[in-house]
């Protein structure tokens, strides 16, 4: 059997694929955080809870309304995004004038409430979500066999990340958005409805988290705790990447997912903390983050 540094090649590939999948979630979530932070200057602590909300909405749609995976994949981000818009309109908006730390504290409270409510109703145990029938079974890639659903997750997240990148960097809406990030007062003076833009941006970021949640539902157990487990790691990803660049957030997400997977292969004990270690090293070497501009 072929080996690389004493590890069978097949096992290594398997872990790398898992790393890419985790990386997909890190990328989608840190992308959402970066989009929100870019315009609103708010770190959305509730991002993990909204990821969980996405998974639960898909689960509820399937089990109570009989709405299948593919519809849920489109419907869920819209529902959760709308909820985000309501929160932004009614509450978050009042905090823009205050220190950004208050935004963090507010969304932290929101995360606790959301997680608490779902724990109350559904208990802490995870709920299974079967992947859609078209994506069941495995595909043979020549060098290894891989469950079809995992391939789908990687492809879907890549497409989504690149679409959001294109939306922000290549379209007229994105140009307005970037302009509003630089100078909201001036953009408003040009007749752009900046408050609406802020609501849209928050809904977009939240919708991305929900999309990631639906993708994650068949892989992880749908559980109220799935959000808080991932959000702290995503914060570390964001510190490593720096929030200045959209592409930076995406690339860092995939990279750290792979780094975590490699650690699992060669030194499993450290796999839980490797991302934090990388963050510490980056802080020592390049405090602004790999792609960051501001300190």
């Amino acid at each position: 059997m072929e080996t690389i540094f004493g590890v069978p090649v097949v096992a290594l590939y398997g872990q790398l694929v898992l790393g890419l999948i985790n990386g997909s979630f890190y990328a989608l979530l840190s992308l959402g955080l970066a989009v929100i932070f870019g315009l609103l200057r708010v770190i959305n602590f509730a991002h993990g809870a909204q990821f969980m909300l996405g998974a639960f909405t898909a689960w509820l749609l399937l089990n109570h309304l009989g709405v299948g995976y593919w519809f849920a994949l489109i419907l869920t981000p819209l529902i959760v995004g709308l909820l985000g818009a309501v929160i932004e309109r009614t509450m978050l908006r009042r905090l823009y004038a205050a220190d950004p730390l208050y935004g963090l504290l507010f969304t932290f409270g929101l995360a606790l409430v959301l997680e608490g409510i779902f724990r109350w109703y559904f208990g802490a145990a995870g709920k299974p979500y079967t992947p859609p029938s078209d994506l069941q079974g495995a595909a043979n890639l020549g060098f290894m066999r891989l469950p079809k659903y995992r391939i789908w997750v990687i492809v879907a997240s890549l497409i989504m990340c690149l679409s959001v990148w294109a939306l922000i960097e290549k379209t007229r809406l994105g140009a307005t958005l970037r302009a509003a990030t630089e100078n909201p007062t001036l953009v408003q003076a040009f007749g752009v409805n900046v408050p609406l833009l802020l609501t849209f941006t928050y809904a977009l970021g939240v919708g991305l988290a929900a999309f990631a949640g639906v993708l994650a539902a068949p892989i992880q157990q749908v559980s109220p705790l799935m959000g808080s487990q991932i959000i702290i790691i995503v914060f570390a990803v964001v510190v490593v990447g720096g929030m200045g660049s959209i592409m930076g957030a995406i690339v860092t997400g995939y990279m750290l997912g792979l780094a975590e997977a490699l650690t699992k292969v060669y030194y499993a004990e450290a796999s839980n903390i490797v991302i934090f270690v990388i963050m510490a090293v980056v802080l020592l070497v390049k405090p602004a983050g790999l792609f960051g501009k501001d300190a």
């Binding site: 009042r94 205050a98 409270g109 606790l112 409430v113 608490g116 109350w120």
Partner: peptide
């Protein structure tokens, strides 16, 4: 009680930040 205290903690957080910082 059965009521999870995190809901309450979170709500107090939100109210505090919004109304009496």
């Amino acid at each position: 009680s059965q009521f999870p205290v995190t809901i309450l903690t979170g709500a107090v957080f939100m109210i505090c930040v919004l109304l009496f910082r």
